[in-house]
Amino acid sequence: MTSSTAEPAVSVRNVYKAFGKRPQEIVRRVKEGTDRSDLKSLGTAAVIDASFDIPPGEIFVVMGLSGSGKSTLIRTLNGLQPPTDGVVEIMGQDITAASPAELRAIRREHLAMVFQHFALLPHRTVAQNAAYALEVRGESKEAQRQRAEEALAMVGLDGWGDHRPDELSGGMRQRVGLARALAADTDIMLMDEAFSALDPLIRRDMQTQLLELQKDLGKTIIFITHDLNEAIRLGDRIAMMKDGRIVQQGTAYDLVTQPADDYVARFVEEIDPASIPAPGGAA
């Protein structure tokens, strides 16, 4: 919808995230060229030199196996894990320089998140869960009710608002998680392995539903997954991560036809390039 603006919705510049007693030291050593496996005694360099821009309205998939740093990377985008080094800009605002209050304001306004294990509040109803972001913003009860209702209808859960999360199946719970993010009505949606805990059939339904919704909503979505088929199906662009680094980013077609290294090549070898539509405009 706002894709005419040149400014990216999310801009990530040389982001590092290290865990351990002296994260700065780890980042310094990694920058000097030390291999991250040689720094095990100091801690973990979870994300190494990640850079990308995501234009508004794009679905950007970060793909990698467990331990590749993809969940940490997505958490640097909303400051749940502040980057150790580098800059993250959300709608032009540098979140690494933001005060705690500013960061909260950016999260409320621009960033919603869907979690792998749903992270619903078990003591609240489905409707109250869906309305959480609005409640935090201090919107009126009436506005909360209405928007929660709309969001639940969007994900096919109309009529379930009065139930408790534990009365719902896994797939339905994640629809509540999705409704909570949609009700927040933010420009950007972060989805951390959002469908990974679901059965394959339900996972496919959820992917279809997300693509349907995206046609109307045109949100900027960052989607984390370890499932290549999911990445290819959803992603306008895919970033492949290995050992904390992004080893290749591009369209699914790029990855399948021109893998950057053996790792990516092994990943995509089962995929038939003919099954992926060659990108029309995007390079």
């Binding site: 749940l80 919603a112 979690f115 992270a119 509040l121 935090v136």
Partner: peptide, 21 residues
């Protein structure tokens, strides 16, 4: 559950809101 607390932060809750809600 840390993920639920994380969800609270992700939607911009204040520490007080996280505690009370």
């Amino acid at each position: 559950d840390q993920e639920v607390v994380e969800a609270g932060h992700a939607f911009g809750s204040t520490p007080w809101q996280i505690l009370m809600r």
